[in-house]
Design a binder for these strands. Sequence first.
DNA 1: AACCGTAATTATGAATTCATTATTCAGTCA
DNA 2: TGACTGAATAATGAATTCATAATTACGGTT
Lengths: 227, 227
Amino acid sequence: MPLTKTIHRPTLHEELVERLRNLVVEDTLKPGEKVPEKDLCEAFGVSRTPLREALKVLASEGLVVLQANRGARVAEVTREELEKTFPIIAVLEELAGELACQNLSDAEIEVIETRHAAMVKAYLAKDRKTYFQANQDIHNALIEGACNDILETHHRLLASRVRRARFMANLSDDRWAQAIQEHEQMMEKLRVRDAAGLGQLMKTHMMNKYAAHIRALEAVSEDAAEG
Amino acid sequence: MPLTKTIHRPTLHEELVERLRNLVVEDTLKPGEKVPEKDLCEAFGVSRTPLREALKVLASEGLVVLQANRGARVAEVTREELEKTFPIIAVLEELAGELACQNLSDAEIEVIETRHAAMVKAYLAKDRKTYFQANQDIHNALIEGACNDILETHHRLLASRVRRARFMANLSDDRWAQAIQEHEQMMEKLRVRDAAGLGQLMKTHMMNKYAAHIRALEAVSEDAAEG
DNA sequence: AACCGTAATTATGAATTCATTATTCAGTCA
DNA sequence: TGACTGAATAATGAATTCATAATTACGGTT
């Protein structure tokens, strides 16, 4: 058994992929915005070569769009894209739920149980920030619990594209209550390690989240039409 | 409706991503092999810059592995990776089947029907090459029929990593017969547009393919142990 | 003033160059 | 003989340079 993890010295382009990805996902670089190589090079203190390498990777992940001779733009998050992405995330979560049921240790389930309690508490206190964090932690734990790094990678790629729509912000009270209830059911399945059951719930949980988002979007566009 | 598709002038690095990907998937560049920048640059007649950009993209797709200051190697196809990848492909195909049932036109189903007939004919004639091609065409048609380019992209990424194991070569007679039967059932579901049914079948079809592959692998390793 | 065409400027794609890190290999010593 | 050292070589990571395409700015025309 190795005493030390093999040290990993990140290259510039790796570092830049990470940083730029964050800028896009955190919405610092807004959808549709141009990604000016020159400015970013100055900001990061690197030359264009590694930055451009990073942009190519981000483009292959779908976070930016490259146009020949016209540089890079931050990819837009279209409704069409959400429509296409959510069902995929849903089936990946379904699979993750099934695998997590099989792979998680009792101790790990206990940890999730704790987080779940924290999330419910945050819900009752209407503390959105804490709720979101706990929610995220639980989902991450389940995905990681699947012990499938490839699944994790693809889930992350899709989730990061969707997260940019940041609809978490307009979570209705109804949907919030429903989400909590769904999480309760998920925990029940997890406790008895009902793999298929948990998978099914996670899938519908994701699709319900999607449906709620669409409703919110439509409410917004109606408001716009009225106003 | 646009009369012309927006013309797409490929940049060098895009072209190279494509070419290199083919070299890896087609097994011209063997797993574990070093990817010598210099030689490839000469072979393609380009400088290192676009080639290196392409390698970064391929690395993010998981086809090559980059080691800082030590260049790129073609990623190995481990059994563990197959174990992790097949279930993901399976659920993606399940989803694709469901969507395809909803989206394919009658005419498009008719085309698949024709290909299916060609595939059966090739099976009866034990013509593996034609069979593989027809099989591939059918699966592609169903994936494309889902009308979900993101699903398509992720499916392609995963499939290209798996295809390198090229287990199609050691298709047993039993498995071949079973596969044909499964395809028959899939066509039945498709004809009546039973979305859930087709999805389910495509999922199990993929997992059966995986199981057969594992059996083949184990037979090989047993032979090795005996010999 | 609005429109068009052309020149100047800028930004981009790709090649080249430079610095640093691995690798190879000859030579030394146990 | 064989393991170790260190110089020579080769390969890589990143900066720079160069050529070209896109954008902007300007001037003339109506």
